[in-house]
Every structure is written in structure tokens, then in C-alpha cells.
Computed example of a mutant assay.
Amino acid sequence: MGEVRNNQRPNVHVYASVWQRILAVIVDLLVITAPLSVISFLVVGNWRGDWITILLEAIYWLVIPVITRGYTIGKWMAGIRIEMRKGNPPGYFCMFLRYAVVPFFYVISFGGLLLLSCGMMVLRTDRKSLHDVVAGTVVVKGSVPKYVPNQSKISA
């Protein structure tokens, strides 16, 4: 299997299923986005948000996955996480690409790129969608150990 450096996981990925990813997005929308929209409506009077709720949502999508090493609440509940291609936790720049830049193109393409992204997730063996390819991330099952030695010595 080769030598593993810096306590990184060997190049073995157990990719998250499409259904796990869909469940994670639904949970995130129900737990974070919907309540913030309601709070914004009650405070400001519109569903689009005020600067405080927009800031809180940006922190959730851009900062929390970095701090928690690839988890959002939805991903944690679905048992999956985001990581970089070599098993490293995601950084701020890739989260910015993943959750801000690429979704902007989903919107300006009137959902065309979003449909392409969903098709990629279904058809690719690594389950990468467009935002994963651009950001250099992959969504894996969270229970995978970070490092499994080739031979372990067990003493009785």
C-alpha cells in the first residue's frame, strides 16, 4: 500500500452516496438556512436576508467545514465529510470555491450547470459534482480511519 506520511490516510476513498449527500443538504437547509430566513423575515421583513443573517450563513458554509475538518451539521448527521483529494481537511479557499464561486455560476446559468453537476454526481465513480471538481474536494464517508497501518502488532 505504500508509505503514508504526515498521518494521512492511504489513497483509499469510500465515497459518499448520492443519497447521503442529498440528505446532508436537506438537513443543512432545514437546520440553518430556513431558520435564518425566518429570522430575517421577522426582523427585516423580507426573505432575502439582512447583513447579519447573510453573515451567519456565510460563516456556516465557508468557515464551519474548515474548523470541523470537513463537516457541516447535515454532513455530520449523514456520516459524511468533505476532504481534499489527498485526505487533508479542506481550507478556506476551497470552501469559497465550493460554496460561493461555483453556486454563483449555477445561478447565472439558470440552473443548467446545477443539472450538469447533479448528473456528474450520479455518473462519476468518485461521486464528484462540479463544485467538487473546481474546489479539488471529494465527499467521503466520515467513519473511514485516517490511517490504518499495513501490519499491526497485537500483544496478548
Score class of each variant (00 low, 15 high):
Met77Gln: 02
Val66Ser: 11
Tyr92Phe: 15
Gly91Phe: 00
Val139Asn: 02
Gln20Gly: 08
Val122Asp: 01
Arg85His: 06
Leu97Phe: 02
Thr53Arg: 08
Trp51Cys: 02
Thr33Trp: 07
Ser117Arg: 07
Thr137His: 09
Ile32Asn: 04
Val148Ile: 15
Lys86Pro: 00
Arg69Leu: 11
Val18Asn: 09
Val27Gln: 01
Leu123Pro: 00
Leu116Trp: 12
Gly112Met: 10
Pro145Arg: 09
Tyr92Gln: 01
Met120Pro: 08
Ala58Ile: 01
Ile32Trp: 11
Met121Glu: 14
Met84Thr: 08
Thr125Trp: 05
Gln151Arg: 13
Lys128Val: 01
Val107His: 08
Tyr106Cys: 07
Ile59Thr: 14
His131Cys: 10
Ala78Cys: 05
Gly142Arg: 06
Arg48Thr: 12
Thr53Gln: 13
Val138Met: 12
Leu55Lys: 03
Ala135Gly: 06
Leu130Cys: 07
Leu115Asn: 02
Lys146Asp: 14
Tyr99Trp: 09
Leu42Gln: 12
Ile22Thr: 13
Gly136Ser: 09
Arg69Ile: 03
Val66Trp: 06
Phe93Leu: 14
Leu130Gly: 03
Pro35Asp: 06
Val27Cys: 02
Ile22Glu: 04
Ile22Val: 14
Pro90Asp: 02
Ser117Tyr: 06
Leu123His: 04
Gly49Lys: 04
Ala24Cys: 05
Phe110Arg: 10
Arg21Ala: 05
Gly112Ile: 13
Ser143Asp: 14
Pro103Cys: 08
Val38Phe: 14
Val138Cys: 12
Leu23Asn: 04
Ile26Trp: 05
Arg85Met: 13
Leu114Tyr: 15
Lys141Ser: 06
Ile32Arg: 01
Gly70Met: 06
Met95Ala: 10
Gly74Glu: 04
Arg127Ala: 07
Val134Pro: 07
Arg48Asn: 14
Lys141Asp: 14
Tyr99Arg: 08
Ile73Gln: 06
Val133Ile: 15
Ile64Met: 14
Phe41Gly: 03
Leu36Asn: 06
Leu42Ala: 13
Ile73Val: 15
Leu42Phe: 13
Gly70Ala: 11
Arg81His: 04
Ile26Leu: 15
Met84Gln: 14
Arg69Asp: 10
Val122Ile: 15
Leu116His: 05
Ile64Leu: 15
Ile26Val: 15
Leu114Gln: 11
Gly136Val: 07
Asp126Ala: 07
Phe96Leu: 13
Cys118Ser: 13
Arg124Leu: 11
Gly111Gln: 07
Thr53Tyr: 09
Ser17Ile: 05
Cys118Pro: 00
Gly91Lys: 04
Thr53Phe: 09
Gly111Phe: 08
Gly87Arg: 01
Leu97Gly: 00
Pro90Ser: 05
Ile32Asp: 01
Tyr92Gly: 06
Leu97Cys: 10
Gly49Arg: 05
Gly119Pro: 03
Ser17Phe: 04
Leu113Met: 11
Pro35Tyr: 05
Glu83Ala: 01
Leu30Ile: 12
Lys141Arg: 15
Gly70Glu: 08
Phe96Pro: 00
Arg21Pro: 07
Ser37Phe: 11
Met120Ser: 10
Arg98Pro: 02
Arg98Asp: 09
Arg85Thr: 09
Pro145Ser: 10
Met84Ser: 12
Val122Ser: 09
Leu56His: 06
Ser37Cys: 11
Gly111Ser: 10
